[in-house]
Each structure stands twice: as C-alpha cells, then as structure tokens.
C-alpha cells in the first residue's frame, strides 16, 4: 500500500498539478489561435509577466501591512493580477499585433512578431528583476497538507501543498466559468462562431473587434493565473514559463488548435504522461520482489528525469502523424 501511495503522490498529484498549469496555459494559446489564426509564441512570457505582476502586488500588499489569515497573499491578489495582465495583453495586441493585422500580414509574420514580444517581455523582466529567482513564500510559510490513509500497515501519507490544492480549485472554477461563458453568453457564442468561420461571423453582424478584445482579456487573465500558480508551486524566475511553452503548445495542438476543451484534455494528457514517464516503476513491483523470477532493478523509468521535456514532444509528434489536426479535430490556417 505504501508503494501505491508513493505512486499516487508522485504521478497522480504531480500530474494533476502539472496538467492544470498546462491546461490553463493551453486554453489561452488555443483561443488566440482560434480567433486570430496565429501561434502566439509569447504566451509563456505573458504567464511569467502575470506571475511577476502578482508578485509585485503581493509585495505591495505586504508593505501596506495587509495579511491574509489562511491563504497565501500571492493567491489572494491573483484576481487583481489577472485584471492587470489582461489590460497589458490588450495593450500588447494594440501595440504589436493590431497594426500588422491591419496591414493584412500573414499568420507567419504575426508569429515572428510574437517572438519579438517574447524578447521584449523577457528583456524587461530581466532588466527590472535581474536573472535570479524570487519566492512568494519569503515571509509566509508554504503549508504542507498530509492526509493519513486509514489502513493497516500504511505509514506513508498523501502529501500536497496548500498552493497545489488552491491551484486545482482555481482551475476548476476557471474551466467551469469559461464553459458557461462560451456556451451561454451571447459574446461567448460569437467567439465560437468566429473561431469556426471568421468571414461568416463578420457578415452575420458579429462585432469581430470586440471578440478579439475579449479573446485577449481571457487569454491574458488565464495566462496570469497559470503563471502565478506555477510560481506558487516552484520559484519565480524570468524564464519561468518560457521553458514550458513547448509542452503548452503541445497540449494545445494535441487537443486540436482552437478547441478550448481539447486544450484542457491535452494539458492533462501531457501532464500525466510527463510524470508517469519519469516515475520509477520499480517501486510498485517491490512488494513482489521475492516472488519474481528475475532480480528487480533499482530504477525502471520510461525515460530518465533529464528528458522529461521530450515526453511532451514525442506525444506531439505521434498525435500529429496519427491525427494531424489533434484529437478533437482542430482548426487549420
């Protein structure tokens, strides 16, 4: 049983945590692709930026002597950080992408422009915060939650941190809210219509400019959420999300670009695949070590830990070859 709990802690919980971050990030990527038809490469850096906004807000709150009893301050300021990042995202669109779109630039040009945005955001973050790491938990403590399993002979506990729990709750709220928005509200339906066929949506009287703005607001807000959650789980650094932009894109593509629910599925698929691939499966077989016909090796992992990032990519290639538009039939340029 102890081994099973070890498995649960290291694969299931870690996979849910990682998958939530990938999913929330991938929703933004997939929405932008659906509406604007280009791969927004700067999404990872928008996540990092959102995390830094939250960090600044937290520092400001703490400087004003404001403390929260149960929750980490970094989490409490998240809604405000989401609003700020959404505003910045609108500004980025106005300053960088809208002029190119107005000129009728190809999606490829917009992709290159988004690399320019990546470099500018990273440069600014490094300029102001240096290249070191920052923690949300300098003054507060990261609470560890241990749940004992009421079974005989079980000594291990199910472990996770409070930010991880909050992160999963926040993801569920965000996904439900997004679902209601996309299926119930007029604007959400307009967004789906535009993702399906932009020209048809425009001639049927949908305000496409408004839809674009709403897309950036949602993408910016979700980016801030994903970035802050990641920074609460690990540490804050300038290349925090730049390093995971590949799995996020993989999640969006695997789920089918332009499909928000595909992105969620893709995010969890890749999150679980990564944690399962680096898990030491030999641990699970240890209780039966005596009755096995061969000697059990100390470590049996599908890939060594250093190659964790390659898992996302292998899944991406396999899915692209087997079903080129993703599992849920995504859009194409």
């Amino acid at each position: 049983m102890n081994e099973l709990i070890f498995f649960f802690n290291n694969v299931m919980i870690a996979g849910v945590v990682l998958g939530s971050i990938y999913a929330v990030g991938a929703i933004g990527v997939t929405l932008i692709f659906g509406i604007l038809r280009f791969a927004h490469f700067a999404h990872g850096d928008m996540m990092t930026m959102g995390a830094f906004v939250a960090f600044l807000l937290m520092t400001a709150f703490q400087a004003m002597g404001f403390t929260t009893p149960f929750l980490p301050t970094g989490f409490v300021v998240l809604p405000i950080a989401m609003v700020f990042t959404a505003i910045i995202a609108l500004g980025i669109d106005k300053g960088f992408y809208a002029p190119l779109r107005a000129r009728g630039a190809r999606p490829v040009t917009l992709l290159i422009a988004s690399i320019g945005v990546t470099l500018i955001i990273q440069g600014l973050i490094r300029l102001f915060f240096g290249s070191g790491t920052w923690s949300f938990f300098e003054t507060e403590q990261k609470q560890l939650i241990r749940i004992p399993v009421p079974l005989e002979g079980v000594t291990r506990t199910i472990n996770f941190t409070q930010p991880q729990l909050l992160m999963i709750v926040a993801t569920i709220i965000a996904v439900v809210a997004l679902h209601l928005f996309l299926t119930r509200s007029r604007l959400g339906k307009a967004m789906r219509a535009m993702a399906d066929n932009a020209d048809l949506a425009q001639v049927s009287g949908i305000n496409t400019k408004l839809v674009v703005r709403v897309t950036w607001i949602i993408a910016g807000g979700l980016a801030a959420m994903a970035g802050t959650m990641l920074a609460l789980d690990v540490n804050l650094k300038p290349d925090l999300a730049f390093n995971i932009v590949l799995p996020i894109f993989a999640a969006a593509i695997v789920g089918g670009l332009g499909k928000p629910f595909g992105a969620i599925a893709g995010g969890y698929l890749i999150g679980f695949a990564e944690t399962a691939a680096i898990f030491n499966w030999s641990v699970l077989a240890r209780p039966f070590a005596g009755s096995l016909p061969f000697e059990l090796p100390a470590t049996v992992a599908i890939v060594p830990t250093e190659y964790k990032l390659t898992v996302a990519f292998v899944i991406l290639v396999v899915v692209l070859l087997w079903r080129p538009t993703g599992i849920f039939k995504g859009a194409s340029t």
């Binding site: 960088f96 002029p99 190119l100 630039a105 040009t109 290159i112 422009a113 690399i115 320019g116 945005v117 990546t118 470099l119 500018i120 955001i121 990273q122 440069g123 600014l124 490094r126 300029l127 240096g130 290249s131």
Partner: peptide, 21 residues
Amino acid sequence: QSRASQMRVFVLGVVITIALR
C-alpha cells in the same frame, strides 16, 4: 553590470518589432 547584460534581449525584441512594422 548584470542588468546591462540582459538589455540585449530587449534590444533584439525592439529591433525585430520595428523591422516588421
């Protein structure tokens, strides 16, 4: 010193943005 060495990433981003525009 460490901040200045990060400036070039920013400069690169500005250069490509101006060039595309």
